[in-house]
Amino acid sequence: MTAAEPARDSAPAPSAVADFRAQARWQWYEPLFWLGAIAWYFLLPTYLPLGTQILATALFALSLDLILGYGGIVSLGHTTFFGVGAYTAGLLARYGWQEPISCLVAAGLLAAFAGWICSFVIVRVQGIALLLVTLGINLVLYEAANKAYKITGGADGLQGIEFSPLLGMFHFDMLGRTAYLYTLIVVFLVFLVARRIVYSPFGLALRGMRENWKRMPALGAGLRRHGALIFVLSAAIAGIAGALLAESVQFVALDSLAVQRSVDVLTMLIVGGTGVLYGSFVGAVVYMVARDQLADLNPAYWYFWIGLMLVLVVLFTRNGVVGALADSAAWVQRKRGRGPAP
């Protein structure tokens, strides 16, 4: 029994808008997912640092999904904004401002600003050029951070940053309990915002843009504005994700700007499924848990099995793991003869 069903039943030929509204309602699996995240805290107390990194990375993947899955903007350099966020939080803490929540806000704002600057360029290119431009911005920023080692600490990373206890009460402990719950709450709140955006009229316009992007060589001014706006929002969320990781690790280094991270997050998102909100979370969980477990089994050759997993996901699913889940759910429904005809 899904929440979407009544809408379908009552309207045999649902209009796009009705369908859209039905999608916007909370599905049965959504609370389940977040309960699962809370359960992780109690059931896997020794996996909290991993859980924290997965949550922050999932938020990062979600930010990429907003531009890729909804806006059709492929980026091979999204960690630019993740890194800006991480360094914002890190540098604030380094120079005396150690309150974590305000650091998070500052990181989001600065990353949004960086996104706004980049957006002028981004909306003018597409296809491979878009990949290269995003990658190029990423590479240039990485080199700049490397060169400016007096500020950033370069490859050694920012030394001696420490954030003050959360709300003045909760110390970032070694077991990672504070970091996990803090990250979970922030990620959930940002997710609510992203969900709201996706199911707003603006979100609908974005999907239109994604389709248009494929057909038209250049976008009209209105769509360009949409593209720029979602890019800025996405950059802000990526910045918050970066700051979250910086605060939970209490360390920032160049790897937060490394292209490998851009590639990883793109991979995770495609593994999970694009344009379905939870794809970023499922992708991050599947990819990072697999990597953690495989690396424990064999630290030297785990890349092989990750690679194999990617190949299998491509060959046997339509839109990542979430796509596969949706397909099998639809298949089960058809078997029972209750679902709508394909």
């Binding site: 996996y47 640092p49 070694m174 280094a253 790897d255």
Partner: peptide, 15 residues
């Protein structure tokens, strides 16, 4: 070169 990973696995080794 990945301090976040290094920190996490150190935590895991400890905990």
């Amino acid at each position: 070169v990945a301090p976040d990973v290094s920190k996490r696995v150190t935590q895991e080794l400890a905990v």
